[in-house]
Simulated scan of single mutants.
Amino acid sequence: MSTMTNQLLALRPDWPGIPIELDRAWSHLEELGLGTMSTTGYIIDPYPDSDAAGPYFSANLSLEGWFHEDSVAYTRVLPIAEAAGEGSLIALWLDDEKNARVILLESEGSGFLIANDASELLVLFSIGYAELLSHNLGSSPIEPISPEALEPLRSWVESEFAMTIPDSWPAPGRDEFSAWLDRELGREEPISEDVPDSSTEMPINEAP
């Protein structure tokens, strides 16, 4: 088991478990020396020597401002990564069937599904977006993380899942998580009326 998994489950003993794909990826990155203890807690930076900061995995992220710790909603969300430097989070969300989906909680209050499972999240991390925010998705990264910095994670994902990494990722829109989030936060109207509806299907390119 990876150090990241141990750290997360120690902080959130209520959580049912980390998807095996994530744990294996974290173990791989830790074996490469990319897991470190920072002033804010344990992190894994999947893009070593990158000029752009890029999203990174973190074991000590807070849901403060989203859910109270004693709420049912809190027990269904586990933040696992910083999406960008402005406070947006990537988290696991247990849907009504207890499947661990991947969500984006943006700093201004919106929330979307961005991947159906952990393996899709790892593919998304392998594309090279310097910031995983809704307005950046839907097209190829404008200022991507360099191929050299992507290599440790990207080559592992391609080998592990026998696939080709796509050039871009679908833009998110209003979905089942957005609706759930609005209900849990007592919001009657969507946080943004100009966000299109979105299918929760996240297409993945299969290996040739």
Rank of each mutant, 00 (worst) to 15 (best):
S88V: 01
W169C: 07
P190H: 05
E189M: 11
L133W: 10
F67H: 13
N116M: 09
M163D: 07
E148A: 15
E160D: 11
A179S: 12
G17R: 03
A10Y: 03
H135L: 10
G35Q: 02
I44T: 08
E160W: 09
G17K: 03
L113R: 15
T200L: 09
E31Y: 03
R24P: 00
S38E: 02
G54E: 05
V102Y: 02
L104A: 09
W66D: 15
A118S: 15
K98N: 09
I191R: 08
S58F: 00
E82W: 01
T39S: 11
D194M: 01
A149H: 06
E64W: 05
I204S: 07
E148K: 15
W156Q: 14
V102I: 15
A179H: 04
P144R: 05
L63A: 12
E143S: 14
K98W: 01
E30Y: 03
I103Y: 00
N205H: 14
W180C: 03
D182L: 01
F177T: 09
P55C: 12
A84G: 10
G111R: 06
L61T: 00
Y74H: 13
L89R: 05
F125H: 12
K98F: 01
I145S: 09
Y56G: 10
V77K: 04
G87W: 00
E189G: 13
W93A: 02
L121R: 04
T3F: 03
A100F: 00
E176P: 02
A73T: 07
R101V: 03
L9D: 01
N205Y: 12
Y74E: 04
S198Y: 14
L137S: 14
G109W: 00
D14G: 03
L150E: 02
H68Y: 08
N6A: 14
P166M: 06
T5Y: 04
S58L: 03
V77S: 06
E193A: 10
R187G: 12
L181M: 08
T75A: 09
Y47V: 12
D51N: 07
G111L: 02
G85E: 07
E201G: 00
E31A: 14
S2G: 02
I90N: 04
A162T: 07
T164H: 08
R174I: 06
S146A: 13
P170S: 04
D23W: 05
L113V: 14
P55Q: 11
L104H: 03
R24M: 11
W93R: 03
E82K: 08
E106F: 02
L113F: 06
N6G: 10
E143F: 13
A91L: 10
E82M: 08
I142C: 13
E188S: 15
E184M: 04
M37P: 00
S110L: 01
S71H: 07
P46N: 10
I44L: 12
R154H: 07
W180R: 13
N136S: 14
A91D: 07
S126G: 15
D70W: 00
Y47E: 13
L34W: 00
S146Y: 11
D95I: 03
Y42H: 02
E120K: 15
T164D: 12
V102E: 06
A100N: 02
R24I: 07
V123S: 08
E206C: 12
N60E: 10
L104G: 03
S192F: 06
